[in-house]
Simulated scan of single mutants.
Amino acid sequence: MIEPEGILTLLNSRSFGSIWFWATLLFAWTLVGRRVLGVPADVVGAAGRRADLLGDDPASLLLLDWLSLTLPRRRVGAGEGALLLGLGAFLLTALAVLGFGYGLEMAQALVLLALPFVLVMVLEIRLARRVADVLHRAQTGAPVNQAGAEAARMMRRHRILVTLISVLAVGLTAFYGAIWMLMHPFGY
């Protein structure tokens, strides 16, 4: 049987003083920045540069093909959205209370790690809905080059926003971790 003291001991282990926490933090943010809605950054970068071509731009076609494959995975229905929102809010609140209310270092680290990812997830769901409209217009007869350029523009803007969020998240986590280490030099 799992004992509550064992779970609390796990949550209280050193995280800000562990190289593994910092490696996980940087690795996670590196992975998030490499793709936008599952589309590689080089595909997004190449699309939409030549929206004035007479024929269909191959880069725009490639971007729209990627989107037609990846966007169906990003659909969240109303019931699923409510369930995800409730479960996520419960977990983050529980971790925040354990971390900042009871002073458990691992819970604080998990909140600082997960909260920006929740923000990025919400922004990606919003972007997916907006890009799905552009993709639908392209599939129903809108010019491919214009649709590719519009989708690429929205995705580039999203990538810049995610980069800013990642820089802020890593910086604030590092600042908070340094303060924690100064205030708790022996881990308690």
Rank of each mutant, 00 (worst) to 15 (best):
E3P: 01
E5F: 11
E5V: 14
E5K: 10
E5D: 15
L8T: 12
T9P: 07
L10G: 14
S13W: 06
S13N: 15
R14P: 05
S15A: 14
F16N: 07
F16S: 06
G17M: 11
I19Q: 13
W22E: 07
W22P: 12
F27C: 08
F27E: 03
T30S: 10
L31S: 05
L31M: 10
G33F: 01
R34W: 04
L37F: 02
L37Y: 00
G38S: 07
V43W: 01
G45V: 03
A46L: 08
A47F: 03
G48E: 05
G48V: 01
A51T: 08
A51P: 15
A59Y: 01
A59F: 07
A59V: 01
S60N: 15
L62H: 11
D65Y: 02
D65C: 08
W66L: 02
L67G: 02
S68A: 13
S68C: 03
T70Y: 06
L71R: 04
L71T: 04
P72E: 08
V76N: 04
G77C: 13
A78C: 04
G79Q: 09
E80R: 14
G81I: 11
A82G: 06
L83Y: 14
G86C: 06
G88Y: 08
L91Q: 10
L92A: 05
L92Y: 05
V97H: 09
V97G: 10
L98C: 09
F100C: 10
G103N: 03
G103Y: 11
L104M: 14
L104C: 04
E105L: 10
A109H: 09
A109P: 06
L110V: 05
L110Q: 09
V111Y: 00
L113M: 10
A114L: 12
P116W: 04
L119E: 08
V120N: 07
M121G: 10
L123T: 11
L123Q: 13
E124Q: 13
E124S: 05
I125E: 12
R126Q: 09
A128E: 07
A128R: 00
R129G: 12
V131A: 02
A132Q: 05
A132D: 13
A132W: 04
V134R: 00
V134C: 02
L135V: 09
R137P: 14
R137I: 09
Q139N: 15
Q139T: 13
T140W: 11
T140R: 13
T140E: 15
P143A: 14
N145T: 03
A147G: 07
G148I: 00
A149V: 02
A149R: 05
E150G: 01
E150V: 05
A151E: 00
A151F: 02
A152W: 00
M155Q: 02
M155E: 01
R156C: 03
R157A: 12
R159C: 00
L161S: 12
L161C: 11
V162M: 00
T163P: 00
S166D: 03
L168R: 00
A169I: 02
A169V: 00
A169E: 02
V170D: 02
V170W: 00
T173W: 01
F175W: 09
G177A: 02
I179D: 10
I179K: 08
M181T: 07
L182W: 11
M183A: 11
H184D: 01
P185N: 06
G187W: 11
Y188D: 15
